[in-house]
Design a protein around this nucleic acid. Sequence first.
RNA 1: GGUGGGGUACCGAAGUGGUCAACCGGGGCAGACUGUAAAUCUGUUGGCUAUGCCUUCGGACGUUCGAAUCGUCCCCCCACCA
Length: 405
Amino acid sequence: MEIDQQLDIITDRAVDLVSRDELRRKLEQARAANRPLRVKYGADPSAPDIHLGHVVGLNKLREFQDLGHLVVFIIGDFTGMIGDPSGRSDTRPPLTRAQVQDNARSYQEQVFKILDPRRTEVRFNSEWCAPLKFEDILRLTAKITVARMLAREDFQKRMQANFPVSLVELLYPLVQGYDSVMVDADVEIGGTDQLFNLLVGRDLQKAFGKEQQSVLTLPLLEGLDGNRKMSKSLGNYVGVTEPPDAMYGKLMSIPDELMWRYFELVLCRPASETVSRQQALAAGKLHPRDLKDELAQAVTGKFHGAEAAAAAAVEFKRVFAEHQLPKDMPEVVLPADQFKDNRIWVAALIVAAGLAESNAAARRLVQQGAVRLGDQKITDPRADVEVATGCILQVGKRGFARLTR
RNA sequence: GGUGGGGUACCGAAGUGGUCAACCGGGGCAGACUGUAAAUCUGUUGGCUAUGCCUUCGGACGUUCGAAUCGUCCCCCCACCA
């Protein structure tokens, strides 16, 4: 494939690129020397679940692999102890070695849903970070200035808002950059919030007399709420190991305007497709629900196969469009001691079925008209009800239980 | 080390002796509507079968008929100056 063609693929969807000329040169040199580029990508093992936000980066890595390049996937078991200050995350609790290893294992499993394992080198950065002596660290810190670190936007903002910035956070980019030195990265990719860290990698490589990595950033995918970036701690994520029904349902719940981002960033659909579809939508030729269904099925299918995705779609239509009962629902055996004269208080029933956290919450749900038992709506929060085995309790749109006495 | 400002429910943030289970916003949940768990609007958001009772406003003791609010001690956080 022509170099320019490769460049086009690589830079598609990219936000920052340092720099195009440099990357072209690297591609040319790699071809001449008949060796793959080493494309670095780092992941923090503090949260073991890969979600669609990560998939944006993984997709890009896969494109590199399909062009014959090698992905150096770094598991930041050492940096994980610091916590990435990007996007002003809170201080994270330190992980035990066992946790890190567990997380790292599930990470690899999940990552290879997208990456090609034959073209991936997995490394733990404790390999070279743990042996560092304090003296080595001093040498490392001498290579970068305070002003350079403080120039970073996150830090600026936090300091202006009187949010704390710890010294160790200042060191984070340094460690990440040191990784680049140690693995001889030719290219590093990350989200746009990683730009600073990635550039520090270049600085350090230069300071160590090595070739500087090219840097490429990708957009941050918004989470289900449509505003903030997808992250596990915000709870607005879709994990790649979630069951098909949950995955499909979550995707159907994103705001309509967000669909395009998911089409482009998760499914790598071309921007031109977005434009033509937006026009068709405006003209009334396409229905947003159908488009979102396509999105949800395609994404679910990417991780679970088309068949499972189609089944999830059918189930979703049954439950939410036609308001029918779901095919599967949890079976709940009710404790006999809750019954008096063969009846049970409705709030206690809901709690026993696991559909509310407390009697008070259950009462509120009843008052709001969210509760059905069999084909009957229950509106009196003080009602005592009879329950026959096989009877179905519904709480809200999504809460179901098949009851057993 | 010095000075100042803080710690309130999931988050942010009011409240500075009783009318406070605690305004308001975000988030969550529910209902209506619908095109979907979109959008919009409305309600709700400590616990207890409950016109009341219990637990909660960094912690511990106090003062008071009564404390998130006052006092003492302690813990923690932030900024500025050194």
